[in-house]
Structures are given as C-alpha cells and as structure tokens.
Write a protein that binds this DNA or RNA. Structure first.
Lengths: 225, 225
DNA sequence: AGAGGCGCTTGATATAAATCAAGGTGCGCC
DNA sequence: GGCGCACCTTGATTTATATCAAGCGCCTCT
C-alpha cells in the first residue's frame, strides 16, 4: 500500500526522522510501504530475517516472546507515533521477538538497507538514532530492576503511575489493552493482577470503572511503588 | 593517571575504537585517563552526572541497582576488553546504575563531550557504536525473557552455558566472582543458587571443585535451560 | 432466545523461592 | 594460636505467586 500525505506528516513528526531534509526523507519513503493489519494479525515472528523496521500510524503492536511451554511474555506495547525494531538492523540477522497487532493497526515498514545507507552519510541522523536506542535501553534497565527488586503489586502500581497522563483530573488511567495483556507485560498472571487491583480498591487507593482506573491517592501509591 | 602504550593497544583492539585512524584515536586519548580502583571501590553511583564512559583494562566492574530496602541487583559484570556506560552519553543526564570494582581494576575513562564531537563527523564510528548498543539491547531482551519465562534453575543453567568457553575440554566454567554476586546477577538468593548447584551435582550433570564447575552433560543441560 | 466463548474475578490449593537459622571452612590479623 | 569475619551450605519454615477450578457478565452467532 502507498503512503498518504497524512501518513507522511505523522511519520515526519516522529523524533527520529525529523532530522531529515526533503530529499532524504523522500529517499526513505521510496522503499517504504504501509501495512494494514487486522486484529491479531502477525507482522513478523521471532527468528524471521530482519529486513524492515516500523513506525505505528494507528493501533497497538504487541512485541512478545513465547516460552517452549507456549506461555507468552509481552515485551512491549507500541502505540501510535512510536518506532520499533529499529535497533535490530545493526545486528542484522533476525527479529528477537514476535510482533502482532493487538487491534486493527497500520504501520509503516521502513527498509533497513536504504536507511543504513542514509545513516552512513548523516551523522546527525545517527545521533538521533542513538538517542532513541539509549532511551530504550534505559527503559529495559528499569524493567529488569522492577522484575527483580519489586513485588508484583509494586510493578502494577508502577505501571499505573507510568501510564498516568499528567494533565487529567481526577488522576486516572485508561487501560487500552485487555488486562491479561497487561499482566503479561508486568510478568504476572491475570489472576494476580486482578487480586492486586482488588486489594488496592479495598484500601480505597484506586477506583475501577470498566477499563478506567482512578488513582485516589497518587502520593500514597508513589510511596508504595 | 596517564595511558601507557600497552593500555593504548588494548583499547584500540576493542571493536568500538578499531574504526578510528591515528589522529582521531589520539584525539580521544587526549582527554582520557586511566583510573586504578581498589577492590570494592566506587567508580560512580546511580544518579551521578554522566561525563565519561569506560573501558576495562583489567579486573571486573560490577554494575548494579539497589532497592530502597538495600537489596542489590547486579545488572552486569564487565570484564577486561569491554565497554560500559557508553550508551548513557546519548541521553546525557545521569548514570542509571552504580559502578563498583569487584576486585582491583583499571579502567580508561573516555570523555563524553570529546567522543560526541568525534561521532558527529564520523558515521562509520556511529555505526559501530550502534552495533554495540544493539548487541547490548539483545542481551537485555534475553535477560527479561529469562527473568519472566524461566525458573531459577533454568537461569543458572543458562548462565553456565553462556559462560562456557567453546574450546575447553572437559567443558567447564570458572566462576570469577563470588557466588552471591552471581546469584544477584541471576535474580535469585545465594541460598537458592547453592541448592540448584547441589541438585545438579546430585543428578551428576555437573561437578563442582571450588570455583570451577565441570559440565558433565552439556546436551542435557541445554535441554533443561 | 439459547449456546458458546472470552475476559475477568474470586476461592482453594500447590509450589518455588525467600527468609530465618545454624554450622562449616578458610583466611587475615592481633 | 585463636579470634573474627566472609563466604558458602544445608535444614526448617514462611510467603508470594502460580495453578486449578468455578462462576459471572457480556458479546456474537446461529
């Protein structure tokens, strides 16, 4: 599928490509395509040869690993306006995770070869790329920290605080994905997530209405996380 | 402390700087210093302003986080010939972990500002840097995977196999750091590590002599990991 | 309308790993 | 020498979380 003007604008507004001039930007687009994915559709599997990286135009992409047992760990949930798999191109080879559309989604697939050519001659773009990668690494360090040094309940609270937009009153979070996906993201079972939320509700720290969670005492929650 | 010729050679043989020509390499060295650290000595703390990244000439550097409770999680153990904290410079700000010398160590401290200048004009160096960062990210993905999808015993086995040099017979691993450090690295308690090793010993899958572990059945261990 | 399926919750039970506790070994140091 | 101190091991107990199981509300499809 070809790329509409609107898509182009969205793509260019992302941090990574904002550094590019018109001719370079067009050069990237030349070999880029838009992929529309149905709910649950596969974008790539772990181990697939890595040829492209991606930008999310709409919808949510789930990046996950699956254990031999079939159990699945959600590594990341990528939303509109974010990139993913951009770091893989530097090791070539294969995608280290599976990518699935959690809901109907549209992504831009950017050609690795073409982009590497561009990087070779544009160290400003390189620095942006490295900044993006660095940010991602910090996120992973925090994730490892949380998985090892914090309890399940603490990770849940941390997730809620992380998702909290800083402009809403009362402070509240919309869960945009099914709870069992969030549980996997946090490395706990759905039952455990349910119980943690029930406990927090019992302590009047939060209120739950469908997929909206109101944080009644952000300070107290912050102390607990 | 100044940099000896031998140190220079070691530094230059690392992947990252191997791309540099003589004048550029000298430019990097100009603002670099060698730091000798005693056992247990602090190199930097989490939150310290990030001004340098490092290369290990000798000894072992421990990168860790510590929980409010005081409990410590070893994020990485950096050996001779490897870099660390090189990705932090792109986000500026602060070190995300503590760095300590596990044993007496010598490191080269490379000035971030100077290195960034160099990167700005050298996209070949940029690509090497990105490759290094990409490799590190893959390691972190695997770490998160292991922490969530594998049991303590499986992580221990995975660690042993990872450390296994591929040229020794019989297949064996020298633990170069105290066992409680490895336990923290794996996200388990020292007692648990001890028990796992005892169990594997009981099943004749490994033999333990002091800090050397002989893997009697690599294939079987690989199946278990 | 009824059947089936999915997502979620709640309860009962099981289990891996942490914690608590004690003892052993080796080592530096007074 | 012998005392204190890491480091490690092993046993007993506790605890957080997973697992198993059942039930509910909601949606879709026939």
């Amino acid at each position: 599928m070809n790329i509409s003007l609107l898509d182009k604008q969205q793509l260019k507004s992302g941090y990574l490509l904002a550094a590019l001039g018109e001719p370079e930007f067009d050069a990237v687009l030349e070999r880029s395509t838009v992929r529309a994915l149905a709910q649950g559709e596969r974008l790539f599997d772990q181990g697939d040869p890595c040829t492209h990286f991606f930008f999310v135009l709409s919808g949510i992409i789930k990046l996950c690993r699956v254990a031999p047992s079939g159990e699945e760990k959600v590594m990341d949930l990528v939303r509109q306006g974010y990139y993913f798999a951009e770091a893989v191109m530097f090791m070539g080879g294969h995608y280290p995770v599976h990518a699935r559309a959690l809901e109907a989604a549209r992504v831009v697939a950017l050609d690795n070869q073409r982009f590497l050519e561009l990087l070779r001659g544009n160290s400003d773009l390189c620095l942006r790329m490295m900044s993006t990668m660095s940010r991602r690494m910090h996120g992973m360090i925090n994730e490892i920290d949380h998985l090892t040094l914090h309890s399940g309940a603490q990770r849940v609270i941390g997730y809620l605080l992380e998702q909290l937009p800083d402009d809403v009153a009362p402070p509240s979070v919309r869960l945009l994905v099914p709870k069992h996906v969030i549980a996997s993201r946090l490395g706990i079972q759905p039952e455990t997530l349910s119980r943690v939320l029930a406990r927090l509700r019992g302590e009047h720290l939060i209120d739950v209405h469908d997929d909206t969670i109101v944080l009644n005492d952000v300070e107290a929650l912050r102390r607990l996380s």
